[in-house]
Design a protein around this nucleic acid. Structure first.
Lengths: 349, 349
DNA sequence: TGACACAGTGAGAGCGCTCTCACCAGAGAG
DNA sequence: CTCTCTGGTGAGAGCGCTCTCACTGTGTCA
């Protein structure tokens, strides 16, 4: 009888604990799993044996019979891409992690970098390694959510899922985000408001532009194609588009960029052209990333509730796990405008 | 006979495949696991049966007998802290992910937020859920690496591990990083070089300061306490320290900050005090984060090989997994100075 | 006093896989 | 023609757990 876990590879088993405690395997199992149908004194005896031997249940054996793995998969389909960067990824993980930890679930991270790896991820998810799957950053036509859902694995997508796939998803209200940014510019007296949009084949890009247009329409302002440009979310892309817009419309006095990086690029170009910010031109970004705060001047930006999105994805997933037949659901989360100096109102007193 | 995987919950088993293929379970197992001792025609028959039924091995059953989980755990002990931010975390994950994917291993992410959750993480790791553990961002006296190692689980720590724990680790050469930054400032003609260090109880803070001092000593420059301050890696902290240094030493013409954020704070303060950058004062940061590139002017910064660190951690871990008794090893990775405008040389021609 | 309920316990089957070992044919050696 | 060898195969044990079901003992009621 050693008086602690022997590190003899094999690990302590239920059987051994049962022997030491002088009860059956079944009873030890009951104690370990918190089954109330155990006499208090027996329970104590078993508990003592458990920590004297340092018993830890073998997860594989358990999961073999319960058919539960106590873990869920998170697939980031584009780990090299934009979503892998600040502030999205850490915040998403934080939200998911917090929601998970209170439920004794673990997170398995899958970062397929190629179609081949993506099909491996699909096999992994459908093999029973996980009790559910969270998918983010999908390409428009990704078959993954449908494939996984077909196998009966609960699935929740972050962002808008591929068309036609009948799965639950959580998304940020990008339209509202864009609209609120532009409304802010209108309210603070800006007259000629340009936008640097995102790629026109990505839903955040499309939606933020739609928000810009909605806000102008609602205010009865005429839209003007010369005030709209499409960037690629990068700083250089933003600078480029800004240069074009500035050339066509030197009278611009406000810019809404669909990312903070593009906003930063715009600021550079505007400065180089002798414009003061915010006095001559107001600038608003999107994402509320660290650079928004660090920039000079600090950038007004649209903050997305990304932690909340992660938590909500987990909530939806567990809902599906407990109600297998349930219909897909959609949750859209509102954004919040964070005002900083880059869009401070001109004194039109 | 349906002609694809039926989604009938239970999943297809080896047994069923064996029956369809008209062979024994053992033979199917051999085929699935690539055992060469199978006749070619039998192999083909089995393979056909496998994908007709859509057979996928049950990981729990497999792992119950092999005692391998084909996954490793990554513990981020401080998910709210600095290491969770750009650029560290995504880059580390990218490095680890790349190294793992070529080896058919999965990554389980553990983000304990409290001592209680940390002990749960310990139990998880030692229960046999993972074949090895990667630990980063440990507090100075964290018992986790020792505890896990004691249980016979291979462990590799990222960053310097708690004192006295005999585990392998991979670290960035922070001393060399600091030294190279300061050498660069010396070489480009700066005379009065200040430093904004990190917290004095964190090894990166200590080491980068040591690098600063080494560089001055090596150049035969006198050190001066009024040129050294300790920040907290944040922008505000950097600004504060910069203000103090500037008040004491208005003759300062270069600053090495132990983080880009602190460098950005320093830039603000210097600008507000009428200094031009880099003409009057050169500024160098650390981390090469996105804000270094975005800042105005773009910041010279010390880039850490973080992807490489992740990959190296995996390499060491697998080494330990294959050679259980092996002695702990240490790998220190060199940094690289990325020169940008904030430290451009003054024309002393 | 007997019938019944019920809390507490143990025996044992079985989850799906791997792996050892025994077996069997057919080839090659003596 | 027998003996050994060897590549290919199957039978069966066993990994550590959960869970059903049968059983025991005690308390309750008629």
């Amino acid at each position: 009888m050693t008086d602690r876990a022997e590190t003899n590879g094999r690990g302590v088993t239920l059987e051994q604990v049962a022997r030491v405690a002088g009860v059956s395997r079944a009873t030890v199992s009951r104690v370990v799993n918190g089954n109330p149908k155990v006499a208090p004194d027996v329970r104590r005896t078993v508990e003592r044996a458990v920590d004297r031997l340092g018993y830890v249940p073998n997860p594989a054996a358990r999961s073999l019979v319960t058919r539960k793995s106590q873990s869920i998969g998170l697939v980031i389909a584009e780990p090299a891409g934009r979503l892998f960067e600040e502030p999205f990824f850490p915040r998403l993980l934080r939200g998911i992690g917090a929601a998970l930890s209170s439920r004794e679930l673990q997170l398995v991270l899958l970062m397929p970098q190629s179609p081949h790896e993506e099909s491996r991820a699909e096999r992994y998810l459908t093999a029973g390694h996980v009790d559910g799957a969270l998918l983010v950053s999908l390409h428009g036509d990704d078959p993954l959510p449908a494939a996984v859902a077909r196998r009966g694995i609960p699935v929740v997508v972050g962002g808008r899922p591929p068309q036609g796939s009948q799965v639950s998803y959580v998304d940020i209200d990008n339209v509202q985000g864009g609209r609120s940014a532009v409304e802010h510019l209108i309210e603070t007296g800006r007259m000629t408001i340009a936008t640097i949009g995102g790629p026109v084949d990505m839903s955040p890009g499309i939606d933020r532009l739609a928000g810009y247009r909605q806000a102008l329409d609602a205010a009865g302002r005429a839209r003007d194609e010369t005030l709209e440009g499409a960037g690629d979310f990068s700083q250089q892309g933003g600078a480029e588009v800004m240069r074009r817009i500035l050339a066509a419309r030197p009278d611009v006095d406000a810019v809404f960029a669909a990312s903070d990086l593009m906003a930063a690029g715009a600021v550079q170009v505007l400065r180089a052209a002798g414009r003061r910010i915010p006095e001559d031109v107001a600038v608003v970004g999107f994402d509320d990333s660290p650079i928004a705060e660090t920039a000079d001047p600090p950038l007004t930006s649209v903050r997305q509730p990304i932690e909340e999105m992660g938590a909500e994805m987990v909530r939806l997933l567990l809902e599906h796990a407990t109600h297998p037949g349930a219909a897909p659901r959609t949750v859209i989360l509102a954004t919040q405008l964070v005002c900083r100096r880059s869009s401070e109102g001109v004194a039109t007193g």
